[in-house]
Nucleic acid binder design. Structure first.
Lengths: 191, 191
DNA sequence: TGTACATCAGTGAACGCGCGTTCACTGATGTAC
DNA sequence: TGTACATCAGTGAACGCGCGTTCACTGATGTAC
């Protein structure tokens, strides 16, 4: 049952989108090709008409969701980013949250292709955040970038540590609340 | 071939130790029971004489390496901790480095037992770091703990983001260098 | 202290199962005339 | 525009393989007398 070119392209995009959600929820190893294709509404055999291997899809789905997360980031101030990112909603919504926080631990053990996708995503995030950050007239060159790198590491670290704690533990919430406050203080002391 | 009680206990500890290294290197899903037992010098069948399941060992190995990492932390000042932790050596030595940075992404998807081990490890680390941190006489209660939570999140986030970048990328080194400098500035501005 | 027997850490074959991947097949789409 | 044929997205059975776990067995250790 051949399908129109446009439909095939739409199906492919739907598979990538489904994969990016499932990978964030369960990790790369926690999602099987058959699992994924069933969730997308297909049988597993057709997978290899679209992708060379599962590893190829992992890289493509990661690149996709890393780039996509910036769509919302572009509309936010740096303080808004912190509010949205270092929050219980984000911590509890792994499947639709930031790909860095969901998968950077797994990415460390993957191929260069996958890591390149992550590096590109990190770089784009730093650019987008930097453009939203108010710069002092006398600021040394690179100061904004340095602050954004530190801010991103704090945000990712806070969410990941909070997620590693039991679901209703006080520590999980404390990590988020404390890091949110400290990051907010860092931002406002500059502007 | 039965083995003496003391030998059996030593063998068990050796398996836990081997597992904690292999899990940090390859992730929980990347290490099979047979793999692990072979690396420890045994055949796989004996595994269930020591542990109820692979998940049980995952929790025990995590608790073990989370507690063990404090042995070195106890001898360090907070600045020494930052120097050792936010470094290329640590980033490139996943197998023998901090369990939080190696496995907290995986921990988020595991059972409550495993997450409890992580929460305990985080709590112990915060305690140990806090005891090393100089407190101002007029500091409000909880200030030290808040600073240590933020510091730990920054350290873990920096190492994990750096590890997610391709092996020889400039960005991977930049993240470490920038976060190290920012964290150092945060520490010295207080003492 | 010496003997007889129960215990149990470690062995290695075997279990069912799900994995990533391949392949012959189907039939609607796209194309050539 | 209509017909004949090639293309190829999607199907579903099948592949070899490694997974976590079980089990009958071995034989040195630990224990009871």
């Amino acid at each position: 049952m051949r399908v129109s070119k446009a439909q095939a392209q739409a199906n492919r995009e739907h598979i990538v989108e489904t994969a990016s959600v499932m990978f964030r929820e369960r990790g790369f190893d926690g999602v099987g090709v058959a699992d994924l294709m069933a969730a997308a509404g297909f049988t597993h055999g057709g997978f290899y008409k679209h992708f060379g291997s599962k590893a190829d899809l992992m890289a493509e789905a990661s690149a996709n969701s890393l780039a996509r997360s910036l769509v919302s980031a572009e509309a936010l101030s740096v303080q808004d980013f912190v509010d949205v990112y270092v929050s219980r909603d984000h911590r509890d919504g792994r499947a639709t949250g930031c790909t860095m926080a969901a998968l950077c631990g797994d990415a460390a053990r993957q191929s260069g292709d996958l890591k390149s996708a992550f590096a590109d995503g990190i770089e784009q995030t730093l650019q987008t955040l930097g453009e939203k950050y108010p710069t002092r007239p006398d600021a040394p060159p690179g100061e904004t970038r340095e602050k954004m790198i530190d801010l991103l590491a704090r945000a990712v670290g806070a969410v990941m540590l909070s997620r590693a704690c039991p679901d209703d533990s006080a520590l999980a919430d404390e990590i988020l609340a404390v890091c949110h406050a400290q990051m907010t203080a860092s931002i406002s002391s500059e502007s």
